[in-house]
């Protein structure tokens, strides 16, 4: 596709960041899951207990299992189950990182798209902060 030079560069950089982040995220996910299943990192909720819990509605599960909400999982990151969150959180952060990376490129040449990218970063940051969860179900 023939692109305007500014957008062509931004699109290329955006793709590179998605690619790198996704690959790192998958490797992290596979390693952390192996540590979890092998028992090398003992989980917060024992594996054998999960079938009694995963059929519960979310609020009941959180209360019964003592599951963390928001960023509380960081305090349990040494547990096998929540160690997996590093890979998951990385996958959920890649798009935001890519937008942050291309924002200066867009700001130089394309004001409209720089504003759109900035607004997208605000939306993603709001979601990632966990603050919006207080407006709905599963509040941290």
């Amino acid at each position: 596709m023939e692109l305007k030079p500014d957008m062509e560069r931004a699109q290329h950089v955006f793709a590179q960041w998605l690619d790198a982040g996704t690959k790192i995220g998958f490797v992290l996910l596979v390693i952390s899951f192996a540590l979890y299943l092998s028992g090398l990192l003992p989980p917060q909720v024992p594996l054998a207990e999960l079938p009694k819990l995963w059929g519960l509605p979310l609020a009941k599960f959180v209360a019964t299992a003592g599951a963390p909400t928001g960023w509380q999982w960081l305090a349990l990151a040494s547990c096998g189950d929540y160690f997996n969150y590093f890979g998951i959180v990385l996958l959920a952060s890649i798009v935001m990182a890519a937008y942050l990376r291309v924002l200066p490129l867009l700001a130089q040449h394309d004001r409209n798209f720089a504003i759109i990218a900035a607004l997208e970063i605000v939306v993603l940051l709001a979601a990632a902060s966990g603050l919006l969860n207080s407006f709905g179900g599963g509040s941290p």
């Binding site: 899951f33 909400t69 990632a128 966990g130 919006l132 941290p140």
Partner: peptide
């Protein structure tokens, strides 16, 4: 899709609705 699903995924993640034992085998 990658942008739209990222936003919603954070909400589920912060709510405790992501169980690695379900999520990781499914993704792989």
């Amino acid at each position: 899709l990658s942008v739209v699903d990222t936003s919603a995924a954070w909400v589920y993640l912060h709510s405790g609705a992501v169980l690695p034992l379900i999520a990781v085998p499914s993704i792989v």
